[in-house]
Design a protein around this nucleic acid. Structure first.
Length: 761
DNA sequence: TTAGGGTTAG
């Protein structure tokens, strides 16, 4: 090696080239993509073979071989010159190749031309990496020896070296090789290769420098589709070290590519848009990206638009959704079944089911040649059916399932949507019939089917049917999950059957179905509601043991529960615990405490808590004032209650609602101030606050006390007019009062009015 | 494309 280094040190670029060693094609500026072949200079195969044969057989005596000298160096302009690249390559070993290089350098009658030497070295690099494929450091040594002698790297050598070093994870060495290449010869292929390694290695800044050179308007190496794909793949799946590339930069980059007529593939564009929509607070970057590609003439297809539509929908940018759909039509971007799915789903989510049906009918209504005609699939049918069921139009949903059969078969989801629709409409029988029907049809129910029916039964007072159904399904191999248990536990808590709820909770773990946070929350709430704070605390500690956290609402439930039990110390314990867990009390927490202190008659502390609430940046709400007003009413301080009410009304920051009026009217009536109560009802009318049954009950009770029949009749008429249903309290007041006053006829027609309105409703 | 829970004033 030292010998060759010495020889090479004396090698200089020489203007007068030996014709027979020249190889003009060696430095072809832009080899074809994707893999540039080694340059193939015009050569004489017979001559090359002859030379190699001599070199191989007279291993030790090249210097004195005249034949070799003649074949290599004679100037015969009629035949093509021998190729140094091919000869070197055919020598097979690095040692021989280097020795030959040395020989040429010292025996050539005049200095060999640089391109030929470059091509010879290209062959040496190839042999070296074949000989020692796992020794990139040896290759690097060869490269450093070589570059000391100012021989230009051929593009193939450079590509080869960059690839070898890059694959070995020596990206910095790849970069060194790249810097050795004459800038005018750094073609697109070499740059793409380096770019890929730099990005994979997380050298984002170096990568961007290479990329920037490609993206300038005047460049010998413009970006191509590969460049785009390398950059996009790296940016999309980037999770490595290295500088974070902002989303603005990504969009800017794509537009720079666009100037060179290079666009992301439809798949990449869709991935990019999805990413931009998911991460940002708005979809504006994704919007700009898509429009940039459309405007510069890139290939934009429905999936990319679908991604943006989804993002716009998530950010509730409805106008933009419409605008994009109009643009798709205008630009001839054909919507697919997913596009229609997004539109229909979106309309359904906002309960605009008639419009969803309209779109649905229009999309398939066109003739077969219509470019916008798309056949709906099962998912689309299911979306519409679910939309109909969610607004209580399950009969129409059922009809749609029959229509659906002409195009595609209903599946489990179809039935689940309909079963839920009928359950929510209290038609449990119909829901069960659908369940039987699906079984007959061979559509298998899944755990969602089970849960929908169990919940439907539970919510309509059929807990034992629900349990029976659950166990029956379990016997058939359809296991429940946390959702099933939530429905049942919640139902048993509401039915005040705490033992059964706890039993189910214990049963869960036996069934290898561990409770999730919602099961714990449900149980804590149920136990607190039942006044079983010790059990609730126990479940809370079990929950924490299982690795779940209590959240602010569940702390509020417990704090409220302890307050109702008059266990302020326990409430404070919870408060301290939630703050230790890093949770701040919210408005509900403060309202709970304000309500507790004011109801205990400690108005000083109540007001202090309220000041603290305000200083924490929380705003007292109608509930806060309601708690105070209620407590002042309870202690008979109606003046203070009315003062707060007037304060609320005048500042109108917190307009009083029906509950506030109900508290005041009830208290005023109970204190014999029926006239003021009546005037509050007028205030309600003026302010557009609707009275409800409780309002009328309180007022009627007050009127009964002063036996003001005429006023009572007026109110009864108002109730009927406003379709405000009387309840058992109303009937209790009126029955006794009106019968003793001989007004049974009035009572009868009042009740009848509701029977009529109930039947027409 | 389908299923579950809990909080404060009357």
């Amino acid at each position: 090696m030292s010998n060759i280094v010495r020889v090479l040190k004396h090698t200089t670029h020489h203007p007068s080239l030996l014709r027979y060693l020249s190889a003009d094609a060696t430095l072809s500026p832009t080899p074809p993509e994707p893999t540039p072949r080694p340059p193939t200079p015009p050569n004489n195969p017979t001559l090359t073979t002859q030379i190699v044969t001599i070199l191989q057989s007279n291993d030790n005596d090249w210097a004195n071989n005249d034949e070799l000298r003649r074949l290599l160096f004679s100037d015969d302009s009629l035949s093509p010159p021998p190729s140094l690249y091919k000869i070197t390559r055919d020598l097979g070993t690095t040692a021989k190749a280097l020795k030959f290089f040395d020989y040429v350098r010292s025996h050539s009658p005049s200095p060999p031309d640089p391109p030929s030497l470059s091509s010879a070295f290209e062959a040496i690099f190839e042999i070296a990496s074949r000989e020692q494929p796992n020794s990139p450091s040896n290759l690097f040594k060869l490269f450093t020896d070589f570059k000391e002698h100012n021989i230009a790297l051929t593009p193939s050598s450079a590509t080869h070296l960059i690839r070898c070093f890059g694959r070995a994870g020596m990206v910095d060495k790849s970069l060194l090789v790249y810097k050795e290449i004459d800038p005018d010869s750094r073609n697109t292929h070499v740059r793409n290769l380096l770019l890929d390694f730099l990005l994979r290695g997380g050298l984002v800044d170096d990568a961007f420098q290479v990329l920037d050179e490609m993206l300038v308007t005047e460049t010998v190496s413009p970006p191509n589709e590969n460049t785009m794909d390398i950059v996009m793949a790296a940016l999309l799946w980037r999770d490595r070290s290295g500088r974070r590339v902002s989303e603005e930069e990504i969009v800017e980059l794509v537009s720079k590519f666009g100037i060179h007529g290079v666009f992301p593939s439809p798949v990449r564009l869709t991935q990019l848009i999805t990413k931009l929509c998911r991460s940002g607070k708005s979809s504006s970057l994704a919007w700009n990206l898509l429009h940039n590609v459309i405007d510069s003439g890139g290939d934009v297809q429905a999936p990319s638009c679908n991604a943006l539509l989804t993002g716009l929908g998530r950010h509730q940018q409805f106008q933009k959704m419409n605008q994009l759909l109009a643009e798709m039509k205008e630009k001839g971007i054909r919507p697919d079944v997913i596009t229609f799915g997004i539109i229909v789903n979106h309309l359904c989510k906002f309960r605009r089911v008639d419009e969803a049906l309209e779109v649905f009918e229009k999309m398939s209504g066109g003739s077969e040649n219509d470019v916008f005609s798309v056949t709906p699939d099962t998912i689309l049918y299911n979306t519409v059916i679910d939309g109909l069921c969610k607004v209580g139009r399950q009969e129409k949903g059922l009809a749609l399932m029959e229509q659906m059969r002409l195009q595609c078969a209903p599946n489990t989801v179809t039935y689940n949507c309909l079963i839920d629709g009928f359950c929510k409409a209290s038609e449990i029988e119909r829901a069960s019939e659908l369940f039987d029907q699906m079984n007959k049809e061979g559509v298998s129910p899944n755990v969602i089917t089970l849960n929908t029916l169990v919940d439907g039964m539970c919510k309509h007072g059929r807990i034992s049917s629900a349990m029976e159904f659950f166990y029956e399904m379990q016997g058939k191999g359809l296991k429940g999950n946390a959702v099933t248990y939530t429905a049942l536990i919640s139902a048993f808590c509401n039915a005040n059957n705490i033992e059964k709820a706890m039993q189910l909770f214990t049963e869960m773990s036996k069934e290898e179905c561990s409770p999730d946070a919602i099961v714990y929350y449900t149980l804590i709430a149920g136990l607190t509601q039942a006044g079983r704070l010790n059990d609730a605390s126990f479940v809370a500690s079990e929950m924490k043991k299982a690795g779940f956290c209590l959240d602010v609402p569940s702390y509020n439930i417990l704090i409220g529960g302890f307050c109702r039990k008059n266990k302020l110390d326990k409430a404070y314990e919870m408060l301290a615990e939630m703050e230790r867990a890093g949770m701040k009390p919210d408005g509900v927490t403060y309202n709970t405490l304000i309500s507790y202190f004011s109801k205990s008659g400690d108005f000083t502390t109540a007001h202090r808590v309220m000041r603290k609430m305000i200083s924490e940046g929380l705003v007292p709400t109608v509930v806060t004032y309601g708690a105070l007003i209620h407590a002042y009413c309870l202690v008979g301080n109606l003046d203070e209650a009315m003062r707060i009410y007037r304060d609320m009304s005048s500042s109108s920051r917190v307009p009083p609602n029906t509950v506030i009026y109900n508290i005041l009217i009830d208290a005023l009536c109970k204190n014999g101030k029926v006239e003021i109560a009546l005037s509050l009802m007028d205030d309600m009318k003026d302010k557009g606050v609707r009275p409800n049954t409780t309002t009328f009950n309180a007022m009627l009770k007050g009127l009964q006390e002063i036996n003001s029949l005429e006023k009572a009749f007026e109110l009864m008429n108002k109730m009927t007019e406003q379709a405000c249903n009387p309840d058992y309290v109303t009937m209790e007041i009126l029955t006794g009062w009106l019968s003793s006053a001989g007004e049974t006829e009035k009572l009868r027609s009042f009740v009848q009015g509701y029977e009529v309105s109930a039947s027409t409703a």
